[in-house]
């Protein structure tokens, strides 16, 4: 997994509530398209017009936000399905970080498995970030819609220079910073797993009568 330390990048506001995983990646794409090729289908229902040309109303299609690596979203981002393809699809667009007031719980975990950082902040702060990004794209603005996310420091720096601190669980932070593979780490704990299972077989034997 690619480590995540500091990300200084264009950020696009996608301020709509309950953007579900079926919007992030429609299931038939997940079925028919290889994992690494999902990028062009991310947010497909919002991103294209019926003739498949780019929908200019979709922020990530707008020149100011082209190449955004950070998405700033509203409540309950990527709610719904367990499909890890939702993470693969946004990664395919180049996104490495999502900032929102709340996330779909399975998507939240899936991000960490792929080196993507989900940052949960109070809604007022998310609205403030989105507001600054939008202001930065207005004519006459002398700043750019960029954010700096520093995982070591746990801060997001806004175009105005304002810094917002965020929380991230220690174990997840360390894995992202070092790019650790969770499966490999857990395999080193095999003796503990075996001991636990031996005990469970003795105390709840009915769970192991499966054949």
């Amino acid at each position: 997994m690619k480590p995540f330390t500091v990300l200084d990048a264009t950020a696009a506001p996608l301020m709509r509530q309950n953007i579900d995983t079926d919007i992030v990646i429609p299931i038939h794409r997940l079925r028919d398209v290889a994992q690494v090729d999902l990028g062009p289908y991310a947010f497909e229902p919002l991103r294209y017009l019926p003739d498949r040309s780019d929908n200019p109303a979709f922020p990530l299609n707008q020149p100011a936000y082209k190449g955004a690596e950070i998405i700033v979203a509203d409540n309950n981002f990527a709610c719904g399905s367990s499909r890890e393809g939702a993470v693969w699809a946004i990664m395919g667009m180049g996104v490495r970080c999502v900032i929102a007031p709340s996330f779909g719980p399975i998507f939240f975990n899936n991000c960490f498995q792929n080196g993507v950082l989900p940052i949960q902040l109070p809604r007022e702060q998310v609205l403030a970030i989105a507001g600054e990004l939008e202001a930065a794209t207005r004519p006459g603005s002398n700043s750019e819609p960029r954010l700096t996310v520093d995982l070591e420091e746990r801060t997001v720096s806004l175009p105005s220079g304002r810094k917002i601190s965020f929380q991230v669980d220690g174990i997840r932070r360390e894995a992202l910073l070092k790019g650790l593979d969770e499966v490999a780490l857990t395999l080193t704990r095999e003796p503990e797993i075996a001991a636990h299972q031996a005990k469970a077989r003795a105390t709840t034997p009915w769970l192991y009568q499966t054949t």
Binding site: S82, R83, E84, G85, N110, E182, V183, T186, I193
Partner: peptide, 11 residues
Amino acid sequence: GATEVIHVLAT
């Protein structure tokens, strides 16, 4: 998710 499925299968 899919990576967690691999984790469960292996461990």
